[in-house]
Design a protein around this nucleic acid. Structure first.
Lengths: 149, 149
DNA sequence: TGCCATTTAATCGCGCACGATTAAATCGTT
DNA sequence: AACGATTTAATCGTGCGCGATTAAATGGCA
């Protein structure tokens, strides 16, 4: 019985340690990468989530808030304030869709579209900071995309 | 020249798209995993970062705030309020180190230590939700740990 | 001993991130 | 046409996460 108890306790220790490593690795990596982006994005006046929103808009500009939320996997409770800040910076415009007044259409302003030129150096700069071989990058990305669909 | 311009523009598009995929995959995966933990941790009355702090404390209980911050890679500006909430729940105690009044020592209360029993089911539950083969898990963890040291 | 540099947490302000709720517009069905 | 269900953003409250600053204790050195 003493052996049984030991084994159970050992399993608990192992399970919790494993869990710590798994989830913590993801949590820590995300925090570290955000910190890595900060100095690069400061120059553009963007936060990391704002940069992500701009990346999505640079690919296709007039988008509804809902479509942005789908692309970024974010709720309107997160997006609405973020978009208001981008609007206050003059990078985007927000307007109700005349066809369907429930929707809000987000459009890049000329300033917002122009920011793309200054942003194009960011990916390479970040890659340098990451010190991750390009070969591993694609593989890691695919694994993460599949994680917790 | 037109070809040169096209090629440059194409590179920019590609770089920004790649960047979006790389950083976004990490960002999205971290958000999704946090959302996945939420219902499991609600039962324990913990948030995900609070759970991480408890995992660290369950491994070694009297720890300074600084040591916790090192283990979790978090600043005191994040940890102090989080620890105050754990203290308010009766899971930990915070006290100045008599040997060095600058330090604050964090100790598990009996309640906090006992919570470990109820938490031991969490890793397995999460693994089920993740639907990630165990074989991939360790590999992913190692890659993430190396990411952006 | 006295004094300046360093260490350590705490505080403050800002910007996410989310669940729950609300409000308005649209849709469907009768 | 009417009215209940659904869709869509916005709002609210809570809890991070961080950089910058502050305050207190300690250490080191003349």
């Amino acid at each position: 019985m003493s052996q049984n108890t030991d084994s159970t306790q050992h399993d608990t220790v192992e399970a919790l340690r494993l869990d710590r490593q798994l989830c913590f690795a993801l949590y820590g990596a995300a925090n570290r990468v955000t910190r890595l982006y900060r100095p690069l994005l400061d120059a553009l006046g963007l936060t990391y989530p704002q940069y992500l929103a701009m990346l999505v808009l640079w690919e296709a500009s007039p988008r509804t808030v809902g479509a942005l939320g789908e692309a970024l996997d974010l709720e309107s409770s997160t997006l609405t304030p973020l978009l208001k800040r981008l609007e206050a910076q003059g990078l985007i415009a927000r307007a109700r869709d005349p066809q369907d007044e429930r929707r809000v259409i987000v459009t890049l302003t000329p300033t917002g579209a122009a920011l793309r030129d200054r942003a194009k150096a960011v990916p390479e700069q970040l890659l340098c900071l990451l010190e991750l071989p390009l070969s591993e990058l694609g593989d890691l990305r695919e694994r993460l995309k599949r994680l917790a669909v």
